[in-house]
């Protein structure tokens, strides 16, 4: 059932996400062939599109889908499907991570394409295609994903909280956004306080100490992300199971 839900969630905006990813690649490919005068004017705009407008569009799409699909009219279908609320939520989280990774990869490729005259891109690709490098890249991707997860769940939790205010939706929206911001701030503060400070000590100079410190920080960081994700997921799930109030 989870796979079926994910297919449904993926289909809602695959055209928009694929178009945005393709747009990034096309811009990245086209830039070196542009006239210098156009470039002077165009590059800041292109970078603004790539790193501001597209991420904002992606976030808006994900939020709108979550809100409409669960707490709008479509909720009357989604909550009457014979699936558990955890599966409904998990499907949304996994598909959001899929879109995030697609856009992240597109952005990285975009940067490589922009800088392709600075270094031999094929040589770089060949160098990256070693098992050791790929393993490290996957590890970095995992760390990025696990750090993004609490943000996604905090946003979803804020939207779910909004639905609880049945008598005053505007007030509910205010409390939902406030709770989301507090949750995100708490997560960031905890991460910086408990894991981040160790990164700041990397000025010591002793490689062994640096490695040990970073490894410890990473484990703490993963533990914090996992703990916050579990709390936010649990609260979301509680609202959907015990406090659901569809309009």
């Amino acid at each position: 059932m989870l796979a079926k839900l994910m297919m449904l969630d993926l289909r809602f905006a695959y055209r928009q996400f694929l178009t945005m990813a393709a747009l990034l690649l096309v811009i990245g490919l086209a830039v070196p062939y542009m006239d210098v005068n156009i470039l002077r004017l165009g590059v800041p705009i292109l970078l603004a599109v790539a790193f501001t407008i597209i991420p904002v569009l992606c976030i808006t799409l994900v939020i709108r889908h979550f809100q409409r699909n669960l707490y709008g009219d479509e909720g009357y279908l989604m909550f009457t499907l014979p699936v558990g609320t955890n599966q409904l939520l998990l499907s949304k989280v996994i598909t959001t991570l899929i879109w995030f990774n697609l856009m992240l990869c597109s952005a990285i490729v975009f940067v490589f394409l922009l800088l392709r005259d600075q270094f031999g891109i094929w040589e770089l690709v060949k160098e990256l295609l070693t098992w050791d490098i790929l393993r490290k890249l996957l590890h970095i991707l995992f760390i990025i994903n696990i750090n993004v997860l609490p943000f996604i769940l905090a946003v979803f939790m804020g939207i779910s909280l909004q639905s609880m205010a049945v008598r005053n939706r505007k007030l509910g929206r205010f409390w939902g956004i406030a709770a989301m911001l507090v949750a995100i701030a708490l997560f960031v503060w905890t991460t910086v306080r408990l894991a981040g400070w160790q990164y700041l000590e990397i000025t010591v100079g002793d490689q062994a100490i640096i490695s040990a410190s970073m490894a410890a920080s990473e484990k703490i960081n993963i533990a914090i992300c996992a703990a916050f994700s579990a709390i936010f997921f649990g609260l979301n799930s509680y609202i959907m199971q015990r406090r659901l109030n569809l309009d």
Binding site: N69, D73, E74, Y76, L77, T80, L81, P82, V83, G84
Partner: peptide, 20 residues
């Protein structure tokens, strides 16, 4: 819950299907 959703066929008074 999940078990009852398998047994009930529900027609809401809203358009619950995704319009796309």
């Amino acid at each position: 819950g999940v078990e009852t959703k398998k047994l009930v066929s529900y027609l809401p008074d809203k358009m619950a299907l995704p319009t796309w």
